[in-house]
Computed example of a mutant assay.
Amino acid sequence: MDTDRFWQLVDRAASADPAAAAESLYDALSALPPEEVLAFERELVRQMGRSNTFLHHAAAETVMGSTSPDVFVSFRTWVLAQGREVYDAFVADPDSLASHGPDDDEQVGAAESFEGVALDAWSAQTGRDPYAEGSGVPVGDSVYDEPSGTRLDDAQRLARFPRLAAAYVGGSPADGPAPIVRR
């Protein structure tokens, strides 16, 4: 699946409500052959890798304080589920998310359903467990890989993301997770 086809499917499903986006995407993927669904999954992992940096992690922390690996994946998935324009802007400049970011923790938490939609659709089509050895699902890169780059400290983070810091109450990663609250 090429990048444009991937984004056509995502853009048609895009929504601030990741559960609704996941449902719409599931319907679209279910109409594709299983090998296309796996190709979508591979492209999803590739696209998610574009925002798997400590710079993007620092942006997530500006919005929500301390961010575990799972929450960071859900945060990036939520951004991706907003569509290509928002995601490409976030990849290029994470501070751009200030005007398009999540309104609450539930949006980010619900993004897990969007993250797993391709493998859910594939499993329904094939009757196989995508996580079982020998299932046919390719293994390798993961949305849970360690971010690349260098961590930002609090001063660097706040200086790098003035719009996010102005848009969200956020918090310091040293203080632990904070609820997502817009100013």
Score class of each variant (00 low, 15 high):
residue 102 P to V: 00
residue 69 P to E: 05
residue 126 T to G: 06
residue 89 A to G: 15
residue 146 E to S: 14
residue 46 R to A: 14
residue 73 V to W: 03
residue 136 G to N: 10
residue 139 V to I: 04
residue 154 D to S: 14
residue 148 S to M: 04
residue 24 S to C: 10
residue 69 P to I: 05
residue 157 R to P: 07
residue 12 R to H: 15
residue 128 R to G: 03
residue 15 S to E: 04
residue 108 V to M: 15
residue 39 A to I: 11
residue 137 V to D: 09
residue 138 P to F: 03
residue 105 D to L: 01
residue 117 V to M: 05
residue 149 G to D: 12
residue 1 M to W: 12
residue 94 P to M: 06
residue 177 P to A: 09
residue 161 F to N: 05
residue 41 E to H: 11
residue 3 T to H: 06
residue 171 G to R: 03
residue 75 F to I: 06
residue 172 S to M: 04
residue 21 A to V: 02
residue 44 L to M: 08
residue 52 N to S: 12
residue 131 Y to D: 13
residue 145 D to A: 10
residue 58 A to K: 04
residue 61 E to C: 11
residue 29 L to W: 01
residue 179 P to E: 14
residue 93 D to I: 08
residue 83 G to W: 07
residue 57 H to D: 03
residue 176 G to C: 03
residue 78 W to P: 03
residue 80 L to R: 12
residue 110 A to C: 02
residue 92 A to S: 09
residue 61 E to Q: 14
residue 65 G to R: 11
residue 152 L to A: 01
residue 148 S to H: 10
residue 165 A to Y: 03
residue 93 D to N: 14
residue 168 Y to C: 03
residue 106 E to L: 09
residue 122 W to A: 02
residue 31 A to F: 07
residue 101 G to R: 08
residue 113 S to E: 11
residue 159 A to L: 04
residue 44 L to V: 00
residue 84 R to S: 15
residue 121 A to T: 07
residue 170 G to W: 02
residue 60 A to L: 11
residue 177 P to E: 04
residue 12 R to A: 13
residue 25 L to E: 11
residue 27 D to A: 13
residue 115 E to I: 04
residue 66 S to V: 03
residue 47 Q to K: 04
residue 131 Y to Q: 05
residue 87 Y to F: 15
residue 151 R to F: 01
residue 78 W to M: 01
